Simulated scan of single mutants.
Amino acid sequence: MATVNDKLPLANRVAVITGASSGLGEATAELLAERGAKVAVLARRADRLEALVERVEQHGGAALALAVDVTDAAALNAAAERVKAELGTADLLFNNAGVMLAAPVTEGRVDEWQRMIDVNITGLMNAIGAFSPQLVEAAADKGIADLVNTSSIAAQNVFPNFAVYTGSKAFVSHASRNLRAELGPQNVRVSVIEPGIVRTELQGHVDHAGTNAWLDDVLANHEVLEAGDIAETVAFLAAQPRRVNFQQVTVMPTFQGN
């Protein structure tokens, strides 16, 4: 007889979420667990991850906290081994870790440029490298697996002072298109989500006065997206019939024109 958990839309799925200590990752982990998935939550802040796991378990879910930095490929490979051993073969990767910094290029903030490249590009590929073998294995066993990458509307549009950030997100979107051609024939669906402005910790990383003023004005005077909106998008993608792959999903606040 099927249990209640077996009847949930994401029952028997094993989901890995990077950048899970706050924002989109945290909200997505909680929602996927609520809908039946076992979740492995990855980020640098161990205390936040442990609190997240405790909440998931209090609601009857199963979760595993792994404190890792996505820029460390070896640590991600070790994390992948633990996920497989403790939760089972991962069949959903929400590749969400990212950082957004902004300033005029003339300020020459090379350290910030490198940080965005390391996390948004190298970190993305480190996670894909660590978990894609499991996604392929799971797809062969279950018939489907999902790789969902977080990009941004910045991948499509122009935002002054955000040149490196927008470039890093353009990489995420275009790499996802290429990965779809590579992994799709192996029944691994690849989707990229391009959100508009979402209320998360990302805005707090920016320390350029002019850009901060613009962000503060937008957040104070407009109804922007919430992290749960993107979590719902990830859950929707994962629950589709195996024949359906939403290749690219742009999610915008109603007020935001571009």
Rank of each mutant, 00 (worst) to 15 (best):
V99A: 09
V110R: 15
E112Q: 15
E54I: 08
R82S: 07
G108S: 09
L66I: 11
V56P: 00
A67C: 06
E50F: 08
R55I: 03
W113Y: 12
L76T: 02
N77R: 15
A85G: 03
A102R: 12
D91C: 08
A51P: 00
A74S: 14
L64R: 02
E107L: 14
R48Q: 12
E107Y: 11
F94G: 09
E112C: 07
L87C: 03
L64F: 03
A90N: 08
D69A: 06
A67T: 10
A102F: 04
T89S: 12
P104A: 07
V56R: 00
A65P: 13
D111Q: 14
D47Y: 06
A75S: 07
D111K: 13
A65I: 04
Q58W: 07
E86Q: 13
A46Q: 15
N96Y: 06
A78M: 13
D72Y: 10
V70T: 10
L93Y: 05
T71L: 02
D111T: 11
A85P: 05
E112D: 15
D111N: 11
P104T: 12
L93V: 12
Q114F: 11
R82I: 01
N96K: 09
Q114C: 10
T71G: 12
A65G: 09
A78L: 12
A67Q: 07
V110T: 14
D47K: 11
L87T: 04
E107G: 07
R48M: 11
A75L: 04
L64S: 00
A97I: 11
P104H: 09
V68M: 13
A97C: 06
L52A: 04
A73F: 04
A63V: 02
K84R: 14
R109Q: 14
A46Y: 10
R45F: 02
E81G: 13
N96G: 06
T71N: 08
E112T: 08
W113V: 01
